[in-house]
Structure formats: C-alpha cells, structure tokens
Design a protein around this nucleic acid. Structure first.
Lengths: 160, 160
DNA sequence: GAATATTTGTTACTCAGTATCAACTAAGAA
DNA sequence: TTCTTAGTTGATACTGAGTAACAAATATTC
C-alpha cells in the first residue's frame, strides 16, 4: 500500500490528473511484478468493467512517459510491463521454458556500459540487459527435450 | 559474395532444402546489416514480385531456428533482423534520435553473465544487451530538444 | 455558470506477424 | 519414367498488441 501511495505522489508531483480509472489501474499494476498489457486490462476490468481497454493502454503509456513504468520485451511471449518507480535498477534473467523471471543487480556493469557508449561518442541514456536460460528445475525436469518459446511469464519475487 | 556462399553451405549442412525463393531472400538478407522483416519483403519483391510476403517471413523463421539469423527488438521502431552466421558475438548501441546502430564487443561481459546466471542456478543460453543513447552528432545538433522515439533504423557498418 | 481543457469509451485501423489450406514442386521408390 | 510422398509456396483470413480519430463525459479555470 505504501508503494501505491508513493507512486501516486510521484504522479501528482508531475501534475498528472489522477482520475478514478488511473487510480484503479495503478493499484492493480503495483500489485504485479511483471504483467502484460492485456493481463492488466483483464485484471482491471474484473474489478470495474466500465474501464476501457484503451484507458489501460493510455495510462500505461502515460506512466512510461512519466518514468514510473518500464516496458520489457522478453523476446519470448508478449511485452511485459513493470512499475519501476522506487525500485533500484536491475537486469533480468528469464527461464526459456517455464518463463520464470528473476531480477538481479550487477553494479559492476553500469560503469562499463557508460565507458562503452563513450567509446563511440554516445551519451548513454538507458539500456536493457537480459539473460535467457534454463532455471534449475527446468534443466533437470526436461533434460534432453527441446526448449520451446516460453508460453507465459509468471510473476516472481525480486531475488537480488 | 563469400558470405552468401558460407551461409548457404551452413544451411545445406543442416539439410534444409534450398529453393530459389530462399536463395533470393538470403542473398538480399546478407546484403543488409540490420533490416526489418517488412524491409526485406519489399527488397525481395522488388527483384521478384512472385515471392510472397509469407515466404519471406517463413524463411526468416527458418533461418532463426537454424541459428543463422537473429531478431533484435530495439524498443524503438520495429524488430530488426541480422544475419549473424559467421559473425562474432556483439552487443548493440543505438542512437535514440537518428536510429544509428553500432555493433561492439565487450569480452569482459561474457564471463560475468555466466556467473550471474549460475548464481541463480540457471544455465545461460543467450542474452541481449542493448545500450540506448545519443550519438555525437545528435547530442550537439539537437541540444535541448526532447528525444523522440526513434523513427527508423539505418543500416550501419560494424564498428568494433 | 460558462468557457476551456483533459480524459474517456467506442469504433476503426495498423503492424508484425500466424494459421489454414489447397496448389505446386522436388526427391526418392517402383 | 511414372508414382508416391513429403516439403514448400501463395492466397486468404486471422491474431495480438497496440494507435488513431472523434464525440461524449468530466474536470478546471475564469
């Protein structure tokens, strides 16, 4: 709940009008760790059918522009969103079979990235760094069988 | 031309039937560094109108599964493809304004990624690492103005 | 309370592909 | 060579993840 409050305050501070629709969408969004747009639409509309799909998309865009939400393309399955406001920067490790997502930090990478960008005269503004593999149980459980495109992603606790 | 030959040989070695459509598609694909599926469709169909959009998509999928082509989601603009066969692994640096893409290598990262995956019991299979920023000329040329979503990507030489 | 601006829902559309399926090859067997 | 069968192709339709247009509803400012 604390988290919702702080996200709402951050939005207000940016002068964004906080309608009841937006509040509901935010409330549901902070409840998930990673979610697809369509999942959020369903979740929100389970609670209030009168909120349209469009409003959810628009709010998601609004939140992205305000820097509170990030969109991740995991290459397997649909793009996933994450409320990143107040969270430390982290990268993602995903299991290609079961879709588990682990968030982790690797502080050593940050300066190296700055350095790489600078090498080409670039000013670094953001980055994405995603690792794909097989989690422990998928390695043993399905040994030998081919790896498919991961079907769907599960919400997962922040691990590091 | 050498490159096309080696890609074709790699395909044959995998027992993939090499039709005239596939040859044309490959020939055009190795000519670009990064290209969107739709760009490749247009390029191929400029040369031979009888090749359908579908065949281009199917061939792209085939090549991905054969490990000769990689699909990159640059977060700005459409997904881009790249014939990676015979190329050393590299990461990407992209200008958020003009869409320039620079390919670069950073060998120090590879073992660190393995290590990070292992920390969580994962077997690392692949990764994507993309840096976004402003290239030298976009930094000075448009100083102060906001950065848009990059409109389209240009084909760019491998720099490192 | 009127004028103005913002937000919303509806509907239609786009982009990047997938799915289906019948017609067309291509390669091996008889 | 012709037959059989499997692989490939093109046409058409459809899907998922949004974007665009616009009028109606709501909020804000005067």
């Amino acid at each position: 709940m604390n988290r919702l409050v702080s996200v709402i305050q951050a939005l207000k501070a940016k002068g964004v009008r906080l309608t009841s629709e937006r509040q509901l969408i935010l409330r549901r969004a902070v409840n998930h760790l990673h979610f697809s747009a369509e999942e959020l639409v369903n979740d929100v509309r389970t609670i209030d059918r009168s909120v349209s799909r469009m409003t959810v998309f628009r709010t998601l865009t609004l939140l992205q522009n305000a820097g509170l939400v990030e969109k991740h393309d995991f290459h397997y399955g649909p793009p996933y969103y994450e409320v990143t406001y107040g969270k430390a920067h982290h990268d993602h490790l995903m299991c290609m079979r079961c879709g588990e997502i682990i968030e982790f930090q690797e502080p050593r990478w940050e300066p190296m990235q700055e350095e790489a960008a600078k090498r080409y005269g670039y000013k670094l503004l953001s980055h994405t760094h995603k690792l794909y593999g097989l989690c422990g149980s998928c390695q043993t459980r399905n040994n030998g069988k081919p790896v498919h495109k991961a079907p769907k992603l599960h919400v997962e606790e922040i691990v590091a």
